[in-house]
Structures are given as C-alpha cells and as structure tokens.
Amino acid sequence: MAENQPEQASPYDSSAFSGPQTRKKREMPEGLWMRCPQCEAMLYRKVVAENLDVCTECQYHFRVGGRRRIQQIVDTDSFEEMFADIAPADPLEFKWSGQTYADRIRKEQAKTGNLEACLTGVAYVKGRRVALGAMDGDFLMGSMGSVLGEKITLITEEAAKQSLPLIIVSMSGGARMHEGALSLMQMAKTSASLGRFDDAGGFFISILTDPTTGGTMASFAMLGDIIIAEPGALIGFAGQRVIANTIKAELPEGFQSAEFLMQKGFVDMIVARKELRSEIARLIDYCAA
C-alpha cells in the first residue's frame, strides 16, 4: 500500500503490497535531467518522455500512470473516457492516527487531478476499437477500492455490450485497506464480470506493469485470455518482506519479476513498451477480428 513498510509478519497481510523496500524509487524525478535507477545514466528528461518513459541506455521501464499510459497505447486523441464521474465514498468512515480516509482521498484527488485510481473508456489502437481500463499508480498506489472495482466491472460489461476487445493495464498495490471488506469484495465482483465476458466470447488482454500485486493480481489481472507483462515489472501476491519474514530466508534472485512469472508459466509474453501497440493490434487481429 501507499504507506511505509510493515514491521510484523503475520503469515499473510496485504501490507506486503508496497513491494520490497530495496527497490529504488521509480517515479520520474522533477527537473530537466534525471537518473536511471537501473543503469544510473544521466538522461535528458524530454528524450526519455519521447521514448515512452523508457531509459534510452538500458531500456529500463519507468512507471507510467493513468492518462499518460493511455496516451501511449491508443491512437492520438481517440480515447473517450467513460464512467468518469464515479468517486470514492468513505463507507467505513475510516480513521487512523489522526488522519481520515475522506481527507486522504481529497489530497490524492488534488495531487493527481483524478477522482480515483482508475481511468476507463473506449479508444482505438492502430484503428481497432477497444474498451480500455488503466490504473493510476499515483493515486493511493493504484489500490483497489470500490471505485476501481466498479469501473473495471463497468468497462467489462461495456466491452461485452459493444462486443469490443477489453484491455486492462494494471498498476496497483492491491486492495485498499481504507474500505475494508468492500475493497476485498471487488476482487470477486471484477472476476464475476470477467466470467460473463468470457461466456460472451469476449477477448481480454491483461497488461501487468510495475507493480501489480496483492488483490489486484489475484483477480482481474491474472484472468486475461492473454497476459502481457512489461519487462522488469514487479508482479506478486504477497509482499517480499512478508514472505522473507515467513520463510526466514533470502528470496531467490529476480523473484516476482515479470521474467520470473513467465518462466514459471503464468505470463504469456513480455512486451517492451514500444512494441505494445503493435502487439495489441496483432493479438486482436488473431483472436477478436
């Protein structure tokens, strides 16, 4: 989750969603120049942006959230946003050490300019019409509360209604604690809607980006007809620290990376960001044309 790391190790907890502390911060720093966290090259910010937020030296994929991600995938100006007015409630009136969830939401909304951690709509990818959802990792770590679950469900139902291929780009720290069990139940809701989409013969491409963890991974993200991962993305159910604390041992090299998942047989392909558009188009032509 968006907060800092947990200290204790109950055998399972979604605190793990924040990912390993050893990983360097991946957000794009401010200023004209930036340093690649992987190869440490000094990069001209504008050049990296033009390169789809990928390091020109080592191909390191920076995190990209929300609207920018959609821009990178769809044909220019083709995205028509849907369900944009759905906003988070505070069903539990959640409070913790002097803070409130209601307040936190307002701050995240001000910071990102979005109402929630997920954007949905229809668009074209190389001329092929698709229904699309993308998570915004800047908004409370892309965590899944009622809104994210509702919007993913709505766009899935819309894809079924319009017989469109469905593309969901995941970037999420998992279920959002502040909505308690209601967040958890979004896992089942989104999965159920994908069951119907599947019954209707719909084609679902799930794209896993850095990071896709916890309850998000354990629901719609792993239910794609085709599952694509971005190179180097952290993809895992439990947090690495929780696992290390539970098994009292070091984790294997590359554990929970996109490459690890593909090797273990749970990801169809790893696609570099600059190939993503043409790969999506090709898959649609094969499976859903």
Binding site: D198, M217, S219, A221, G236, F237, A238, I243
Partner: peptide
Amino acid sequence: AYPGVGSEERCVAEAIAVNML
C-alpha cells in the same frame, strides 16, 4: 493464502482469481 516462495512460483494469485471467476 500462504506467503511463501512455492506459493508465488505456482501463482496463488492466479489460483484465487480463477476460483472466484
């Protein structure tokens, strides 16, 4: 679900997701 190496290797997330669906 058990947070262990084998659990992740055999992808408990996928198992849970498929069960719900």
